[in-house]
């Protein structure tokens, strides 16, 4: 262990602000990237559901039209 106490760990030998800022922003940037990817997938999923329902509706209507004709 390179540090004697929690305080020493947070302080980083006086460079705490710089070290934790670097790590914090890195984590934030990566989290945003991952969340954006997950959100895109969710939106695509909804879009696919809509697409499929539309295709099914169209197919049903075609069948009905054939039935009445």
């Amino acid at each position: 262990m390179a540090f004697d106490s929690w305080y020493d760990f947070i302080d980083m030998g006086g460079y705490g602000f710089y070290v934790w800022l670097a790590y914090g922003v890195t984590l934030l940037a990566l989290t945003i990237l991952v969340m954006h990817g997950l959100r895109t997938r969710k939106q695509l999923q909804q879009q696919a559901v809509q697409q499929q329902q539309r295709q099914q509706r169209l197919a049903r209507r075609k069948q009905q039209e054939r039935g009445t004709a």
């Binding site: 390179a2 980083m12 030998g13 460079y15 070290v19």
Partner: peptide, 14 residues
């Protein structure tokens, strides 16, 4: 790297 690696003799913990 954060907890167990030693400090640098020139740059400290930065």
């Amino acid at each position: 790297g954060m907890l167990f690696a030693p400090s640098d003799y020139q740059q400290g913990d930065s």
